[in-house]
Amino acid sequence: MKVVVCCKRVPPTDARIKVASDGSGIDEEGVQFVLNPYDEFAVEEAVKLKEAGKAEEVIVVGVGPADTAAVLKNALAMGADRAVLVKDDAGYRDPLSIARALADAIGAEEGVGLVLCGRQSVDQQSLAVGPMLATIAGMGCVMDVVKVEVGDGTASVHREAEGRSEDIEVKLPAVLTAQRGLNEPRYAKLKEILKAKKKPFAEREFDFGEPRATIEKLSPPPERQAGKIVGDGPGAVPELVKLLRDEAKVL
């Protein structure tokens, strides 16, 4: 079977983000985009499946502007076989539209047995694209997986949920979203980085139609209030407890 991994370019989590002056999105000037860390887990898992002989081909698919190519090449350097970029220059694209574009690209491939996504992108954090994609493509979906074992026509997956852990068997083809803990993504070897340049890289168009949702205004979070030192030593404890209870309301 073929495994498709959905990849997005995002600002690094430690980047200092500025909102663009018109409030429409972030100021991309000087931001060095990276492969979404959760998508990195998904790529690593797909490459491991291929190395274990469970997958024949790993295809990475991205929706975004031209420089999304760089993060798709990262995925190729990690061991994916070929890349498909659905070009989209809209600064913001709602999750359903992205899921449709991905479903369209995946629909063009024969023999896809598994689709892996990051659980969320670290910038938009909608956690919606994976399950929406599964719905459109008519596939089963398990979110936040931390273990994947591919069997004959099914996959056994493990996920940690609030207050419990679950072992689930899902029929293939299916969409799985990767949670931290699934694996430790490898560093791309220098040789693989050079090889990635020669791997097939296709571009696709998609008619996004009217947007389902638009960002009206993006604002940075409010500035943090200055802290307060209530005193020194054990004598300050009663006052601290009082403030934590009455003002901060955390006790």
Partner: peptide, 9 residues
């Protein structure tokens, strides 16, 4: 891209 990728790795 390749030079950046090697540096970033």
């Amino acid at each position: 891209d390749e030079e950046r990728q090697i540096r970033d790795t």
